[in-house]
Nucleic acid binder design. Structure first.
Lengths: 146, 146
DNA sequence: ATTTATGCAAATCGTTTGCAAACCT
DNA sequence: AGGTTTGCAAACGATTTGCATAAAT
């Protein structure tokens, strides 16, 4: 719905492959790597239809430009993607495991958000930056790796 | 000093090339990309001696393992490095310009740090993660790009 | 003397791209 | 039909690695 509109604004179509990608990202609670996305998409795709990597990359780039998905700053060497927050409805940050590379979502706390927006204001004042987004990673070891 | 000790702990030597790298990173107030590091190192290196990329990568990897430098999560496609915070003495976060890719340091505010450590505690409790570091990027447009 | 680091060139690996065929409206 | 997306294979570019030589202890 929203997705189709956003793509249309850039003369882009909402095709079967792209639907599969958006569904996969909509069904998870953490950012996925390309291999993970491909595996999940191929599992949910009809018949023997396999989505090639190149198409996934291209489609995800298109979806990112349309503001449907977001490409994360690489914590390891694999790119990760998640649904845009205004579509998933959850403002969140990430827990990053230094041992296995896992990235998990963690809900943002109001207190943290307040402190953050103040920090943004201060930074803007002192440096001339115009801050309009932020990114927080809590880094450590996941339950499995501890 | 500290640097030599940390390297020695891993049976690593503090050579001229590595000194040049550490000096370069010690002389700047923002994380540098490999090309930037090479340019600066070569400027400060004696005679016609040029530091090859591969050596820079290898040495920076060694320095990172020794906890002397830190490799940043790639905001764009270039890796960035900075001196470890316990050597530079400044706990800071980053301003990232989405337009030109600039990454600038910004001092951490006590309020933000407090909110952050609370968030870490909550996350630990709810997910079993052991949080021992964090990473904050304020994303926007720098003064030049606005 | 030994062990570790360096230079160079070649290899890797994630990601991007050219082009012709398939798809959507 | 007319423009867009897909698949495949080839191209890219940042980072890594093998190996012989130089440097450090």
């Amino acid at each position: 719905m929203q997705v189709e509109v956003r793509l249309a604004a850039l003369d882009q179509r909402y095709t079967r492959g792209r639907r599969a990608l958006v569904e996969v990202l909509g069904d998870t609670d953490r950012p996925l790597t390309i291999p993970e996305i491909l595996e999940a998409a191929n599992r949910s795709l009809p018949g023997g239809h396999r989505l090639p990597q190149s198409s996934a990359y291209r489609s995800l780039t298109a979806l990112a430009e349309a503001g449907v998905v977001r490409r994360l700053a690489g914590n390891d060497d694999l790119g990760r993607f998640e649904l845009a927050e205004d579509l998933s409805g959850h403002h969140h940050h990430h827990l990053v495991c230094t041992s296995c590379g896992l990235v998990a979502d963690v809900p943002a706390s109001p207190r943290l958000e307040r402190a953050l927006s103040e920090a943004g204001r201060v930074a803007a004042e002192e440096t001339g930056f115009e801050v309009n987004d932020h990114r927080i990673d809590l880094v450590g070891r996941c339950a499995t790796c501890r």
